[in-house]
């Protein structure tokens, strides 16, 4: 589904991603872990189409198409979804309207009939139960005045409504209490299916108690330095990222 090859990206001439390779197949759940500033969000944003990051080398294929050539909204309509680490507050734009417009743009692209306000409400109410969100939030402006936890659950709600094929969660677990964390995990687990792929970017091993990844990757300084199964997350928990970097350096010196 997703193939990232030797991806380099920089911002204002400063290189952040320094050659990322990653293949994600349908049905798989990958977790990317890494310390602060290692480039996790940069990777997520590049995949979603943020143009403040300049891709200087490499390529990304999504369902065989050149993802980097697609506009952000085109990617979304084609099934790519990124849950923002910092969801944006948009005063004056009604959440329900926004969600329905987004859903209809995607449905139209998929050749499905657009939903009217009433049908949409039925659709969204089920999804809101899933993330245990108050329906009143639908009538507020997007993320405006939402608590940190509400914003994160709002991202999960959007994901549940839009039913993407490839979902990238950028630290959706950060700053959540254990109950909210379980809700987020439930949302992700509900979405898991044979024709979807999910990338969970996280700082902490904690969420992986609730979402069991097929693969874990460690991103340090713009490169994936280790890949493995879920046991890698546990090793990481014990040794920390410093250990990973050392190991990486060792591998490199052997190779040279």
């Amino acid at each position: 589904m997703l193939e990232i090859r030797n991806l380099h990206a920089s911002v204002e001439g400063h290189e952040i991603l320094k050659g990322v390779d990653l293949t994600v197949n349908a049905g798989e759940l990958h977790s990317i872990m890494g310390p602060n500033g290692s480039g996790k969000s940069t990777l997520a944003q590049v995949l979603a189409g943020r143009d403040t990051y300049e891709v200087t080398q490499g390529e990304v294929l999504y369902e065989g198409r050149n993802l980097l050539e697609m506009a952000p909204d085109e990617r979304a309509r084609a099934g790519v979804f990124m849950a923002f680490q910092y969801p944006v507050e948009i005063p004056g734009v009604n959440t329900a309207y926004f969600l329905r417009a987004a859903l209809n743009a995607i449905r139209k692209h998929r050749g499905l009939e657009e939903l009217d306000a009433a049908d949409f409400l039925d659709w969204v109410k089920d999804k809101m139960k899933l993330v245990d969100m108050d329906e009143r939030l639908l009538n507020r402006s997007i993320n405006e005045g939402f608590s940190g936890g509400e914003k994160k659950r709002g991202e999960i709600l959007q994901m549940a409504v839009l039913e993407p094929k490839l979902a990238i969660m950028d630290e959706t677990d950060s700053g959540l209490d254990i109950d909210a964390l379980k809700i987020v995990a439930k949302g992700v687990n509900t979405l898991r299916s044979a024709d979807r792929a999910i990338i969970v970017i996280t700082h902490y091993q904690r969420i992986l108690d609730y979402i069991v990844p097929d693969f874990v990757h460690v991103l340090v300084d713009g490169r994936i330095v280790r890949s493995g199964g879920k046991e890698l997350a546990i090793e990481l928990e014990e040794k920390g990222y410093a250990g990973m970097e050392q190991k990486n350096a060792a591998t490199e010196s052997i190779a040279s």
């Binding site: 979603a48 189409g49 943020r50 506009a71 952000p72 909204d73 990617r75 979304a76 309509r77 979804f81 990124m82 923002f84 969801p87 944006v88 948009i90 734009v93 926004f98 417009a101 987004a102 859903l103 743009a105 995607i106 692209h109 997007i142 959007q158 839009l162």
Partner: peptide
């Protein structure tokens, strides 16, 4: 970017804002 990343076209996002 937030609106577009959810599938709204560039003019639709601009219009909404």
């Amino acid at each position: 970017f937030y609106l577009r990343s959810r599938g709204l076209s560039e003019p639709a996002s601009r219009g909404l804002l």
